[in-house]
Design a binder for these strands. Structure first.
Lengths: 238, 238
DNA sequence: TCCTGAGTAGAAGGACGTTCTCGCTCGGAC
DNA sequence: GTCCGAGCGAGAACGTCCTTCTACTCAGGA
């Protein structure tokens, strides 16, 4: 709900809301502004908890305490813990997508754009080495931390939340295809899903194979990119 | 521990145990046999619970009740619920690896072997459509169901449990490489991890991209195989 | 006979998420 | 200034799990 509100005054998704609606909305604001502020305090508290304490997990109690608000308020704004997680996840996806888009727009070559996307997203998804809060490198950290639980428990909502990232990658893929550096005729949206999944949960693959991942592992990133590319690139040589 | 015992009399992995050791072991049996039987009852109960009830989750209480044993016994044989899950997971991986190995050994062409492995493992990892218990199609179902939690909470043990499957795929990859149908110089063990991860959690990629997976989805399997192959195959054309 | 080891039955403890109750407070209408 | 009710803080209470602990049983061997 809060996220919808946010979306409403940031970019009207459905239709461009009449001035009347906007006026009415603004007149209801007195309460709304406070509410949004409160919601934000919960979100901030949760983010801080994830940043510190090295464990990405937190209890509702902790969030409530750190936010300086009450349990009652929490359940007034969130239907449950899962909604808080969902909100954080949406935020995370959104900011990650923005970050990647910025990183990419400077580049013209479609293939290089795709490579940058891949490598940078890979980097963002690597688990943080220690208790070091990583709030400075742009987007919200620990994107994949939530994903797992949401993906299984609330696939519908998780799916919605992923849209910005999936759409971006889909576009990048299509542009690369248009430029002839990527095979045409693929179902790019599904490919995007596969790629995002493979990168997000790359940490699992290391565990499965018994290897361990070093933070900022250039080699693994290159390996994954190589694997991906030669399954996609038009050029010969496998 | 129980699983080690099982492995010991099924196929001696380390070295072929002398008759003396076997005799000694058998002499200790009176208690041991009962213990193994009890452990097995817990395992069976858990499997039945996962097979029915459509939800792959169960509580320790349920397992205890269904097994007709006591809570006390449970904690006498398992250090906690996670050990039960681990035991089930090991079993699942082992039987899956066996199943795949059998499926493969009839085939001579290295590339076709790899393809069969991939497609069949893909099929096995697809979530069951409904409450239909799938115990008849060979290996234990729902392999990826546990994986997730174990991989994050107990990476060390999960890693160990994965060994049979990883080794098998690694071998298949190396043979394909030796035959010249797969690039040489790759780190096959890591590739195996990536591939297994990508297939196991393929359901996620469908959710991420917003698609839904039909059970026994030939097309998705083919798509994934195609993606994988053209990143690995020696032949030209991307 | 007594003792021990393995079992059963089930209460108790501790973590969490979630709900509920009791007041307090504060902003605005009069 | 006064009053009122929605919003909110504090935190007790509840339900579900996993886990531990206590008390009792029972078979078999010194």
């Amino acid at each position: 709900m809060a996220s919808n509100d946010q979306a409403a005054d940031a970019s009207p998704a459905e239709r461009p809301a009449t001035w009347r609606e906007l006026a009415v909305a603004r007149s209801l604001d007195p309460a709304r502004v406070r509410a949004e502020k409160r919601v934000q305090r919960f979100l901030d508290a949760a983010l801080e908890l994830m940043a510190t304490s090295s464990s990405k997990e937190f209890t509702v109690q902790e969030v409530v305490e750190r936010s300086g608000q009450s349990l009652r308020s929490f359940y007034q704004y969130f239907a449950g813990k899962h909604e808080l997680l969902l909100a954080l996840f949406e935020e995370s996806v959104r900011s990650t997508a923005e970050h990647l888009e910025q990183l990419i727009e400077a580049e013209d070559d479609p293939l290089e754009r795709l490579r940058r996307f891949t490598v940078e997203y890979f980097r963002l998804c690597q688990p943080a080495p220690k208790g070091k809060p990583a709030s400075k490198d742009g987007p919200t950290p620990a994107l994949a931390e939530f994903a797992q639980q949401l993906l299984t428990d609330h696939p519908k909502e998780a799916s919605r939340a992923y849209v910005p990232l999936v759409s971006l990658l889909e576009r990048v893929l299509e542009q690369a295809a248009a430029a002839g550096v990527v095979r045409s005729g693929l179902r790019y949206r599904r490919i995007a899903g596969v790629v995002l999944q493979a990168i997000s949960f790359n940490a699992f693959s290391a565990t499965i194979s018994g290897s361990s991942v070093k933070p900022d592992d250039q080699e693994s990133a290159a390996e994954l990119w190589d694997l991906l590319l030669h399954g996609i690139a038009t050029g010969e040589r496998g």
